[in-house]
Design a protein around this nucleic acid. Sequence first.
DNA 1: CAGATGAATGACAGCGCTAACATGATATTG
DNA 2: CAATATCATGTTAGCGCTGTCATTCATCTG
Lengths: 349, 349
Amino acid sequence: MIRNNAGDKLSKNGSRSKGRVTLSDVAKVVGVSAITVSRALNDPEKVNPKLRVRIEQAICELNYVPNRAARSLATSSTQTLAVVIPTISNTVFSNVLKGIYDQTTGHNYEVLFANTYYSLQNEEKVIAKLLAQHPDGIITTGLDITERSKSMLLSANIPLVQIMEVGTGEVIDMSVGFSHFDAGASMAQYLIGQGYRNIGFIGAQMDFRSQRRMRGFISKLAASGLETDKYILTTTTPSDVKLGGQLLADLLANQPDVDAIFCNNDDLAYGAIFECQRRKLRIPEQIAIAGFNDLDASASINPSLTTIRTPLYEIGSSAAALLINTLKGRPNMSKTLDLGFELITRDSA
Amino acid sequence: MIRNNAGDKLSKNGSRSKGRVTLSDVAKVVGVSAITVSRALNDPEKVNPKLRVRIEQAICELNYVPNRAARSLATSSTQTLAVVIPTISNTVFSNVLKGIYDQTTGHNYEVLFANTYYSLQNEEKVIAKLLAQHPDGIITTGLDITERSKSMLLSANIPLVQIMEVGTGEVIDMSVGFSHFDAGASMAQYLIGQGYRNIGFIGAQMDFRSQRRMRGFISKLAASGLETDKYILTTTTPSDVKLGGQLLADLLANQPDVDAIFCNNDDLAYGAIFECQRRKLRIPEQIAIAGFNDLDASASINPSLTTIRTPLYEIGSSAAALLINTLKGRPNMSKTLDLGFELITRDSA
DNA sequence: CAGATGAATGACAGCGCTAACATGATATTG
DNA sequence: CAATATCATGTTAGCGCTGTCATTCATCTG
């Protein structure tokens, strides 16, 4: 049994202790005061190099692990960032989370995350739950938020970054993202420019950002005098590949003359492409398919997918960087960061 | 400004306070002692219902958020579980993480995660980092672990679940997963049974579990007297769809007579299928393709993918359940849970 | 060499909460 | 009705760490 391998040297802790090695256990072994060990850990240059070495040895021998709860209490800083996203099982958000994670690692911050599953009610709950950890900063998804959530975030009095979108709604503190409306419009523009006229849209989940993409898309169709209703098919069911095929099938059943389809996201687009393959519909000759996000497989699928690349990882890392800068007292260039998007034209449209 | 909307009633905190509302602020407003407010929160049935209502009102008015660091220090329980996975950006692990998350939510545990990026060195670092948060329990990936990591985990003296695999190596405390060796063997068995004879394997990343899948696969090939070397192509590059196409192309360049390929995971299999489509190779007539994990798109792709379904979500939720049970003092049936796998035969092989 | 300076270490209190025990009020019992 | 049990609330101390100020001792300066 490795635990407490120096147990005989340890202080007799009160009954409430779990018997873990503490700072003063280390101090006792070395023969210095606790504060000196604390300094050796947090401000190494403030303690004599030789002493420091002895302290480090003792820490290693005793397998001492600092107690962050105690440290947090003493410093009123938890060194954690809270992240509120719709769901971790959507590649979009796991990419964002990776950006956040990579940025915080190396800055000695921990990441606490929670899923809202696209519900503003859940969001209130998880915000309350996360704030109870007193994170030093918080990242939430989207600009649509309940008054209660907003009030909680404000009274937490910590820096906040709302991610994924800019240019719509009120920003509480800071924000990083891009314009979903413009992205949708930009895809419509492209498809129109390619000569398509019976242009459709299929969407699942239809959260606020999907809706804005759709509105941007439709606005351009309208501006060109194209049909803005009959080629649109959406559902609030969560998005997946299979659903893309089903939506395409449903749309074709009612509107067989549709000649181009913008899919809410790449997953749906994959499903749509697979369905076209089964129906021996030639893409893009008979029907064009476009997606959104430029996921991993989009460049490899046949035909390769025309889509919009969104800076998911960068949104995460920038949001975390904004928080960390703010927490370190460094001023940020701007409170709102528009990272844009990029139309990637490939073979499918 | 919403913060401290009842600031005038608040105690004059010492200079070290951040001016947040505390338990005793609430107590003062209600006119009771701090411990009573604490009980109202943690043991509501122990305080008079009328008083409880007044306390709850005060909490709401003051926007009081409990300080978990202080609570942790007092109770030596953090109500957090730590999770060590290779990378969040692999769908496999985001599914696992979702299972963990869903299980912990509702049991009032927070989840802290860290990525090792498939490096045992990194793993040591992140384990140390996570243990500094004194989680109540910890989940790590795989049974291959350094002595130092093991020693840290042991001296933390908290329940541990090693996930993803069983039946190989030493389990430190508990484990949940399935046998990768058997899964690989099972796929070989199936392909042999289907009449394929020049059976290959392509793999990326080639972490310990991938290696065991490959060894299980090869062992069956050997048992049937089939070639176990020339149709094998692996790389340690991280896996993605595009790479699947490249590996297939490389393998075909050297061994054009390969008639079936087991891909390390579904991503590679997608890439391989796409490459076959571009080469107009008919699947499964000219070449059979099989995958691993049964991701979302596998049922929809053309041809639909024969693969092995792995209980990713269940591994996560079971691991979290094991920890929570242990922490609540409830005995677990078994320290090791083999959740098995399922061969899903579809059109590609 | 008195006085000033700086480097290294220590003493003490307090961060916000809760475990453990103490107290007082009310209900219950033979 | 005294003895006892029960319920509701309070007092005290301490969880492990660090901010702040104090102390010690070596070094430097004119």
